[in-house]
Design a protein around this nucleic acid. Sequence first.
DNA 1: TATTGTTATACTCTATAACTATA
DNA 2: TATAGTTATAGAGTATAACAATA
Lengths: 135, 135
Amino acid sequence: MVTRMGALEQQLWDFVSAYDAAFDRASEDNGLSAAQACTLTPLTGDRHTMSELAELLLCDASNVTQIVGRLEARGLVSRTPDPADRRVKQVAITPDGRRLRRAVAKSFTFPRERVARLDDEEQEQLGHLLAKMLS
Amino acid sequence: MVTRMGALEQQLWDFVSAYDAAFDRASEDNGLSAAQACTLTPLTGDRHTMSELAELLLCDASNVTQIVGRLEARGLVSRTPDPADRRVKQVAITPDGRRLRRAVAKSFTFPRERVARLDDEEQEQLGHLLAKMLS
DNA sequence: TATTGTTATACTCTATAACTATA
DNA sequence: TATAGTTATAGAGTATAACAATA
């Protein structure tokens, strides 16, 4: 991707590009934008505030307002004021939202398929290498 | 990211998320959107047609028209009709565009830094695993 | 006065459909 | 008629600044 990029860096670029493209496709095959699918992802049954979502999604709160607004209009999430502090909104995924999130996860075969090409020892190696790079 | 996602899949998600966020930052630190930086990337001195770019970037040609239009307005690429077939446009990066592409590459330290955490043997392992997953 | 979230606005990305110029 | 690219248009993502409601 860059001038004089090493072979390993190029492989990483290629892998990430393929991964991203596959996630985009999985989202759009289920009628969601990637951003919408990413927003449904962390809503794991607990309630989350708009600010928490903005932090998780690494974007501005005003952006979350819009994305959540579209998801809410489709009945995929709910937004209710926190009784303890009525400034705060509690966002929760609905059963429909959960279904769609599962459908996206099922469509997103890329990581499963690619990891399945590695034998047990290689999978363990990969986990070790990723942990080292992420630490 | 998904219901019941394996640990290895979660590590991949985390790595890709961090990689993408770092590329976005590197682009925006240099006054480019990620899409603009991605468009400058493959313009390696040869000439490319709009269609080729659309294929490389996995998007519609009308989208490339707009992105290239903005890059051209800033003097980062040039667009000239192919004398052999005047329907075709040859896109080339300018010296300013090259400078900016290098600046983005320099800012995008994430892959270099993370790979540098691995010793020589681990880097070789990673290359092997990526090749297997990309094949 | 400070904080949470929304609204208003502007720009970019993206695709589809209609169009222009060229072949 | 077919192809390369553009234009028109519309919807979505994104951020900044101004605002409302609540604390």
